[in-house]
C-alpha cells in the first residue's frame, strides 16, 4: 500500500524570501505525524502546498500515490483539510455547512446524509446540527470545522492548529476525537503550538525552522539528540558574558549561552549535582539569583534544535 503522503524537496519562495527550503518527509498509512516549528518557520506554507492551496516552486507531493500537480482531483479527494481559522458559513446551520462541503466532494445524496449523521455524532453536535453555526460556542465551531473535513473519509487528515483559542474542555473533546480517528487508522498531519498535544497525538514529529526540516523522528529519537543533558536557566546578577565563559569550563557542561541581559542557558548532564560548581565558577564575576532546571523532553529538544520556544 502506498504511503498516505510523500513530499519531496518541497520549495516555496515569496519574492526574495525562501519560505520553504527543500522539505521532504513521508507519512505512512495510519500514522500521526506532527509538524512543529516556531512562528514563521514555514509550517503553514508547507501545509498549504500539501493541500493544494499553494503551488510549490519545486518539489512534488503525492497523496495516497496520486501526484498533486499531475492528478490534483484524485489527490485532493483523499485529503481532509482543517484550516486554522473557522472556515464555515455562520449564517448556515451545522448540517447545511456539512451538506454544502460534502457535495463539493461529489458524495451521492444518500451517502452524504449518512456521513453527515456519522460526523455530527463523532464531533458531538447531533443535537445542535440545525442551529446556525454563528450561534455555536468557540469549541463547537472548532469541532464542526474538523467534521467538515471528514465527510468524504479522507486518507490523510491535515489539521492546522485545530485547538487554537478553545477552552480546555473543548480542547479535550477535540483531542479525544482526534485520538479516535488515529485509532481508526486515519493518517494525520498535525500542527500545533501546544507541545503536549503533539506528544499525545503523534508518533513521529518533524521540526521546521527557517523553512527547513531540521529534525525528524519519534519523540524518543528527538530527545535522545540532547543526550542526557538537562536544560538549565541561570539568572545572574553581574557580567553574564564572563559568567557564561566560566560556566562553559565546568565539567559536564556542554553549552553555556547568554540569553537576554541577566541569564545564561546551559546544557549539562546531572545538573542537580552541579549547582555548587556553577556557584563557584561565576564567583567574582556574577551572583546566581535564580535557577530553573528542565529535564530532557520534546520542548527541550525543540529549543535545542531551533534556538527558540514554540510560542516565541
Amino acid at each position: 500500500m502506498t504511503d498516505a503522503l510523500v513530499c519531496q524537496d518541497l520549495t516555496k519562495r515569496f519574492g526574495r524570501h525562501l519560505a520553504v527550503d527543500s522539505i521532504s518527509f513521508t507519512i505512512e498509512r495510519g500514522e500521526a505525524y506532527g509538524l512543529l516549528g516556531p512562528n514563521g518557520a514555514g509550517k503553514t506554507t508547507t501545509i498549504s502546498m500539501l493541500s493544494g492551496l499553494l503551488r510549490p516552486d519545486a518539489g512534488s507531493v503525492h497523496i495516497a500515490g496520486h501526484a498533486l500537480t499531475q492528478d490534483p482531483r484524485a489527490a485532493k479527494a483523499r485529503i481532509g483539510y482543517v484550516p486554522q481559522e473557522i472556515a464555515l458559513y455562520p449564517e448556515l446551520t451545522g448540517r447545511e455547512n456539512l451538506r454544502y462541503f460534502g457535495r463539493l466532494y461529489g458524495l451521492p445524496r444518500r451517502t452524504l446524509q449518512n456521513r453527515i449523521a456519522e460526523v455530527l455524532d463523532l464531533v458531538g453536535l447531533t443535537d445542535r446540527a440545525d442551529d446556525k453555526v454563528g450561534d455555536y460556542s468557540g469549541g463547537m465551531k472548532r469541532r464542526i470545522n474538523i467534521g467538515a473535513a471528514l465527510l468524504h473519509e479522507p486518507t490523510l487528515l491535515v489539521l492546522d492548529e485545530p485547538t487554537v483559542g478553545v477552552d480546555p474542555q473543548s480542547r479535550n473533546a477535540i483531542l479525544e476525537g482526534v485520538d479516535q480517528l488515529v485509532a481508526a487508522g486515519m493518517s494525520l498531519l498535525y500542527t500545533s503550538h501546544y507541545m503536549e498535544e503533539v506528544e499525545r497525538v503523534c508518533k513521529r514529529v518533524g521540526i521546521i525552522d527557517k523553512g527547513r526540516l531540521v529534525a525528524e523522528g519519534t519523540k524518543r529519537e528527538l530527545v535522545s539528540r540532547l543526550g542526557t543533558s538537562d536544560r538549565v536557566e541561570l539568572v545572574l546578577d553581574g557580567d553574564i558574558t564572563a559568567a557564561a565563559e566560566k560556566l562553559r569550563a565546568v565539567d559536564r557542561v556542554t553549552e553555556a549561552v547568554p540569553t537576554g541581559t541577566s541569564s545564561v542557558r546551559l546544557l549539562a548532564e546531572g545538573s542537580r549535582h552541579l549547582l555548587p560548581s556553577f556557584i563557584a565558577a561565576v564567583e567574582g564575576v556574577a551572583t546566581i539569583t535564580g535557577v530553573e532546571i528542565t529535564e530532557p523532553d520534546l520542548e527541550a529538544a525543540f529549543l535545542h534544535l531551533t534556538g527558540s520556544t514554540l510560542r516565541d
Binding site: S51, G52, L53, P72, R73, A74, K76, A77, I79, Y81, P83, E85, I86, A87, L88, Y89, P90, F101, L104, Y105, G106, A148
Partner: peptide, 13 residues
C-alpha cells in the same frame, strides 16, 4: 475572510 474559500480550493474541483 471566512476561510471557506480555502475549503473550496482544497476540494477536488
Amino acid at each position: 475572510q471566512l476561510g471557506t474559500l480555502s475549503r473550496l480550493r482544497v476540494a477536488p474541483v
